[in-house]
C-alpha cells in the first residue's frame, strides 16, 4: 500500500486563500485545492500560472477560417467550376456566413479539446479516490491535498504543517481502499 498524499479539510472559504499562499511559500508544488465551486483568487494564491487555453482556441479559430475559405474557394472555383449567373467563381462577400460559422465551430471544438487536455480529463483514476472525505469536495468542503509525488513530501511533516494551517480532519490517503482498522484510526488524527 503506497501513500498518495495527505488531505485536510477547510470549511471557511476565507481560510483557503491564506492556506494556499502558505503551502505555496513553503515550497510545495504538487498540491491542490478541491472546491465545490471556483473560488475567486484561490488559483492566484496557489501560484497557478495563467492558462494557455486562449491560444489553443485562437489556433482553432484560424483553422476554422482557413478551412471555410479553402473549402468554398477550392470546391467552387477549382475542382468543379460552378457558374452562378456569370458571377465570379469565388468572392469574399458570399463566403462570409460560412467563414463565420466554421470559425466559431472549430474554435469551440478546440476550446473543449484544449480544456480536456489541460485538465487531463476524462480520467478513470484519482490519487485521492479511496478517501471517503474527499467526496465532500464536490459538496461543501474545501479540501487541501498535498501529493506524495512532491519533492518535499514527508508524511509526518506534511501532517503537522496542515494542522498549523488550521485544516481539520487531516489524514493520509493510500492507493488502495482503507480497511476497517484504518477507518477507526482516523478520528484519533482529528483529535490530535
Amino acid at each position: 500500500m503506497k501513500v498518495t498524499g495527505v488531505l485536510g479539510d477547510f470549511k471557511d472559504v476565507n481560510h483557503t486563500i491564506t492556506a494556499a499562499q502558505q503551502v505555496n511559500e513553503a515550497g510545495y508544488r504538487e498540491f491542490d485545492f478541491f472546491t465545490p465551486y471556483p473560488v475567486h483568487g484561490l488559483d492566484k494564491a496557489m501560484g497557478v500560472k495563467r492558462t494557455i487555453l486562449p491560444y489553443i482556441s485562437f489556433v482553432g479559430a484560424c483553422a476554422g477560417l482557413a478551412t471555410a475559405l479553402g473549402l468554398q474557394w477550392w470546391t467552387g472555383a477549382v475542382d468543379y467550376k460552378l457558374n452562378i449567373g456569370g458571377k465570379q467563381l469565388f468572392a469574399i462577400q458570399f463566403s462570409v456566413p460560412i467563414d463565420f460559422e466554421l470559425t466559431v465551430l472549430l474554435c469551440a471544438l478546440s476550446t473543449v479539446a484544449g480544456l480536456f487536455h489541460l485538465c487531463r480529463i476524462p480520467t478513470w483514476w484519482h490519487p485521492f479516490q479511496n478517501d471517503e472525505g474527499f467526496k465532500k469536495a464536490t459538496d461543501d468542503t474545501f479540501v487541501l491535498g498535498i501529493y506524495a509525488t512532491d519533492d518535499r513530501f514527508h508524511v509526518e511533516t506534511v501532517k503537522t504543517f496542515m494542522h498549523q494551517l488550521g485544516a481539520a480532519n487531516v489524514r493520509v490517503c493510500y492507493d488502495e481502499p482503507a480497511d476497517a482498522t484504518e477507518v477507526t484510526a482516523t478520528p484519533s488524527v482529528v483529535t490530535a
Binding site: 480529463i121 476524462p122 479540501v143
Partner: peptide
Amino acid sequence: SLGWDGSMRRWHHYEMA
C-alpha cells in the same frame, strides 16, 4: 463527469473555457 474532482487547477482552465 469525466473524473472531475473540483481541483482548483482544473477550475482555472475551466473558467477560461
